[in-house]
Amino acid sequence: MNSAAPPCIVDVSREPSSVCVRLSGDANMNAVKVLGETLADVHARALVDRCPEVVVDVSRLEFINSTCFKEFLRWIAKVEIVDPSSRYRIRFRYDHRVAWQKRSLRALEHFAVGLVTVEGE
């Protein structure tokens, strides 16, 4: 067994009616910059494309530290101030077997009621 955690990988793809962001690995201090930049890019792209929804799949994310978690908060806060006519929704997908995913994402849902939804798979 290799005890080193896998690096955080952020994969972005365009789907017919959404932008999909898939995260995997370990979102630790090494991942903060990449995650922040990626979410900024996703935000810009979603607005330009007038995308109604961004889906963030964290089901393969092993862990997220609070610094990376803040990047989600900053992103959500930016979406909150977009004019409602251009604003997109954010939907998080998580693995219901991973307890921290459920708890942390529920916190995001309560943070931005109506904007963020979460669903366990």
């Binding site: 609070s66 803040k70 908060l73 900053r74 806060a77 916190a107 943070f111």
Partner: peptide
Amino acid sequence: LRRSAVQASGSGGLG
């Protein structure tokens, strides 16, 4: 959560 969302950087006690 609300404070961290608008904080530019640094430790705000979120952890």
